[in-house]
Design a protein around this nucleic acid. Structure first.
Lengths: 343, 343
DNA sequence: CAATCCGTTGGTAGCGCTGTCAATGTTTGT
DNA sequence: ACAAACATTGACAGCGCTACCAACGGATTG
């Protein structure tokens, strides 16, 4: 008995080939590299596929070719606005390519990351994008064994697994705090939440800038490992104020915290920046439209996602970028909330 | 010559089986249904797999079993905070199950949705979650042909493709506007952006509530198809004010717009709610901590994502829920921004 | 005019796993 | 004690596609 449309009711490549009057392998080539066919056959296969409504079986393709067309992406949070921009860049850049994105959420846990990495291993992705540079030794080992291009994003540092796209959080925060110092502020507080590695590096930037200006005082620091939120910004700022009532500025580890601080200032009738200067980090959309507009450090999040995918895609094609570490930098967006202190 | 670790350097199931001294099929069963093995063999296979560091080949599994362990998810935006909550629910609920999430972004385009749906078709997902109820006829046909559980989320309506989890945007907005009416406001404006189907239904709720109170006036409406943002809220509100300077309240199609309106009020030194009441939609985190706290309609976004996955998972196991349409409702969160109008 | 090359096409043989069904032991009921 | 029911295991035959290599014809070359 002829074997035909055996189990599944799906159209197979063989059917298409038969209708087009070519061998299955020629039909197969049509879907992967149409230029290799003569125009006449190309035409025939195309119309046969359309007529039958053929949909290639990805599992069979992956099994036969020993590779997938999936790029794995590991991010630490789905809630944080920062990552939605990165993701948008990632999805945008992957569009049009044959590759699809497989997203996983580590929830800021390097152990979860390790586990997810092993899960990805089973999929043999064509490429990988991971957040940050603080993987466990085990995670690094898995990545190195994975034999596919890997981009670490959000930060840059020495010793990339493969490629990196990011910027120096420490330098960026250093610039932010130095700006406040230049504007004449002296008692500059720091408010931080979540305290993931990037937040810690930003805190490092704050510390170095304060020390460089001989203004460092541990009482000016208010951090927590609680996940960040706007409300939390207000709470932390309130705590900070009760400990150090003489602060004249706050550098916030991110923009959500900064907005929370602004609201708390409004609640206490502290004018910004006259009574309290505020600076945020990331330059989310609301920073410019807040009242007063809030100074922040713009980070190129969308571009980071885009570049990471572009680099991974190029590497898959064999074109590893000459320089594996790309620094996307940052821009200090000076706004009213950090206007110079009155003399 | 013996065929062994043929092309790829990967460990195969056969190797594990050999080391464990069982047949490949028994080893296979170990990974899918360990309870079916006798304790001794289970033990042997487990240790053999561990020793060799075996990772199952998902493509081969999918090909042989004619199904995948992927749940496809279609959402219209990665930027909108609303969807990050839904996504969090989706990812949280899928964790622990064997299923992984495949996310795709339609960018509010039903044509893009159609295309992505066809792309998903090729993957034969085990389940599908799509946003909204306004698919094209073509999309519906693809979904119906897909032969897997499908949940439509965010909204509810008649004629589900399979299952639905959501709430009535029209009823929710109706409740919001009725609340403003009850509080004594008369010239209630509406500000809307993006104008996707859900925003349009919310607008419908506004219109009905205003008509019911004999307060409807087309000059009170300011909408645009431009994607939503906080800044846009301010702009639209400014436009609205110049057209209808006598408005005493604004109902915003979402919270971002509401925050933009609040900022614009602050800029113009309009007190909220004395000069202008504000009400938002979704109850994002910042609504409660704004100054003054902003009234909003809480929607159960996280729960929506969770339920959708739970229902799809159950349906995959053959337990379709008795009631295919689940209404998660909404709660009016009354805060200071809609305090009663002075007599 | 033969030798060589290239572009195009097809045949064969798996890729690694699981569905099906039969075979084997093992317990239960009467 | 014997049949019947159950639990456990294995053999076989693909799942739909592509890598690899060979074959073919026509164009190009010396």
């Amino acid at each position: 008995m002829e074997r035909k449309r055996a189990k599944s009711g799906e159209i197979r490549l063989t059917e298409v080939a038969k209708l087009a009057g070519v061998s299955p392998i020629t039909a197969s080539r049509f879907f992967r590299n149409p230029e290799a066919l003569s125009p006449s056959k190309r035409e025939r296969v195309a119309s046969a596929a359309k007529e039958l409504g053929y949909v290639p079986n990805l599992a069979a393709r992956a099994l036969a070719s020993q590779r997938t067309e999936v790029i794995g992406v590991l991010i630490p949070s789905l809630t944080n606005n920062v990552f939605s921009d990165v993701l948008r860049g990632i999805y945008d850049a992957s569009e049009g390519s044959r590759y699809s994105i497989q997203l996983a959420n580590t929830r800021y846990s390097i152990l979860q990351e390790e586990q997810l990495l092993r899960l990805f291993q089973a999929q043999k992705p064509a490429g990988l994008i991971v957040t940050g540079i603080d993987q466990t030794a085990e995670s690094r080992a898995v990545m190195e064994a994975m034999n596919c291009p890997i981009a670490q994003i959000m930060e840059i540092g020495p010793d990339p697994v493969d490629m990196m796209v990011g910027f120096s959080h420490q330098d960026a925060e250093f610039a932010a705090v130095s700006h406040l110092v230049t504007q004449g502020f002296q008692r500059i507080g720091f408010v931080g939440a979540q305290m993931d590695p990037r937040m810690q590096r930003r805190f490092g930037g704050y510390r170095e800038a304060m020390k460089a200006a001989s203004l460092f005082d541990p009482r000016l620091i208010m951090t927590t490992s609680v996940p960040t939120s706007i409300t939390l910004g207000g709470t932390l700022f309130a705590d900070l104020l009760s400990r150090a009532p003489d602060i004249d500025a706050v550098s916030c580890g991110n923009d959500d915290l900064a907005l929370g601080v602004l609201f708390e200032c409004q609640r206490r009738h502290l004018s910004v920046p006259e009574d309290m200067a505020i600076i945020g980090f990331n330059d989310l959309e609301f920073m410019a439209s807040a009242v007063p507009p809030l100074t922040s450090v713009r980070t190129n999040r969308y571009e980071m996602g885009r570049s990471a995918v572009t680099m991974v895609l190029a590497a898959i094609e064999g074109n590893h970028p000459p320089e594996p570490v790309v620094d996307l930098g940052f821009q200090l967006m000076v706004r009213q909330s950090s206007s110079p202190r009155r003399p």
